[in-house]
Amino acid sequence: MKALMSLGALIGVAGLLLLGGMFFDIVPSSTVRLVEGYMPIQLLLEVACYVIGFTGLSYMMNAMGMAIPRFWQGIGFWIFLMVYLKYRVYPPIPFSVRAMYGTVGLVTVFMWISANEEDWTKFKQPIMNVLDAQTGGKRILRYAYLVLLPILIGGFSFNAMLPKSEEPIELRTVHPAPPASTKVHGKTYTLQTSQNPYRVNPEGKYDQEFSNANIVEQGMGRLMKPNSNPWDEKNQGYLKYVREGGEIFFQNCHFCHGDNLNGRGLHAFAFNPIPANFTDPGTIAQLQETFIFWRVSKGGIGLPNEGFPWASVMPPWEQHLTVDEIWKVVLFEYWHTGYYPRTWD
């Protein structure tokens, strides 16, 4: 038990030092990087680590006879949570969302400290002591509170009432419901039944197994399989079309969606909504190939209202590319990210 708790304490201290160091630029702020696409789980894990750390820490302090009063433990943890949400999480969460997390955090802390009568008494003891003011120090503290509280609360409300111009929060549906069919260059494609005509084996037959065997490997770098180089002149079928799709991608799409298909292209910084990140497991990996075909063909202007057609700069690619070129680009996007398109069955 003790060993376990010391381990926890160690984690807690190390974590706090690291976080503090990163906030104050003592160690580079990129020491523990947030990996794209895994951020939520990473943050949850981190917070879990801190909870374990704090438990261990408080146990150790207790054992060493330097127990921190329950009162300060509760307040300390809540402050830690708020600081963590404000400075660690990136991209930053808006204040309203932080306030919600803060309230939930506060309720949790209260539940924890009022779990039994004894804990609750321990928690409110310091407050009662100040109210009763039986020692000189406590008396000074009481008067300080009496003066400071009205000033602070008045100041906060003044600040809150000053006219502000914070950016309105607008929530957008990234993957709106697709139509049943779409008409591109005069031909109607039923989304449920259409297939990518270039997902074919060297014999020219639709072959998902063949293409899935030749996509890049998942894992750091997402590199091509050693024997599946789309730049090999001898390629027939799938890989040949991947290369042709790549050529189109790097003449048209990378300006926004980026050289690594992560939505960080040359022009991406200027636009809002930001271009889709295909390497994120929440985008093309969740969708059917025909859905992408529809989105690419019709672009931002073809979105339903929940997708913000007025703000999206995604071109309706039917104005720039042929149907074949669009299918090839879709093929390339799945190859390069190493994801399988979802199928209808």
């Binding site: 926004c256 636009f271 700069v313 071109p315």
Partner: peptide, 16 residues
């Protein structure tokens, strides 16, 4: 105010 090339409709401006 960040500016990107207008690449939605023709003529697209790749080099702004």
């Amino acid at each position: 105010v960040a500016m990107g090339g207008q690449i939605t409709h023709k003529p697209r401006n790749f080099v702004n």
